[in-house]
Amino acid sequence: MRELRFDGVSVRFGSRGHRVTAVDGVDLTVPAGSVVGLVGESGSGKSTLARAAVGLVPLSAGRVTLDGAPVPTRGRRPLQMVFQDPYSSLNPRMTIGATIAEAVPRGTDRRAEVARLLALVDLPDRMTRYPAELSGGQRQRVAIARALAGRPEVLIADEITSALDVSIQGAVLNLIRDLQRTLDLTILFISHDLAVVRYVSDTIAVMYRGRIVEHGPADTVLADPQDPYTRELLASTEGRSR
């Protein structure tokens, strides 16, 4: 169980004259064993922040730490990420058993571990199937099992339900909640959908134009939003659900 911390993290793209600041001095703490929901519209910098945490994009300033130490770049990864698109993130030419087995650390009984992980995400006996034989929701479960295979303590879920049908979204969200409780995971849950974030998160951070504009317990942020952008976001969600 670890605490994930962003201190003054900035990510800039492009060169002089054509520079975009995607993430602008973000301070955010995901306490050990809790779920922090990160919401914001497309282009607000949520995914860039997640990619910076796992090292897929370089930081321009600030640091990302796990329990005060920098995220290790070699060996076992205590930080794992589940990606948005379950259709393209699995190798179409490998069985899901093989895909998950690759992520299992050396020295463990891979077959047994894969079976355990698939049972954990409610997909028993699918080891020899190819991704094309599974539905979107099932593939996203495979992606979650793949991330869990590395025995992470912190999970970053980047828009993991946005490519799925609404009916399947609920099942995947329930799975994330159950896993978080049974495995005591620290989760940074990213979504543009406030309703989805509300369902799984303990605290909610709102991101707008690369900055965190509001951060607090889920109930407080939703009941009494301080920032005008949060109010706007909230209003749009409620307008849609009505």
Binding site: L56, S88, S89, E102, G150
Partner: peptide, 11 residues
């Protein structure tokens, strides 16, 4: 492709 990114994420 995304699955190459996934493969890299497995180190």
């Amino acid at each position: 492709a995304d699955y190459i990114r996934t493969a890299r994420a497995k180190r």
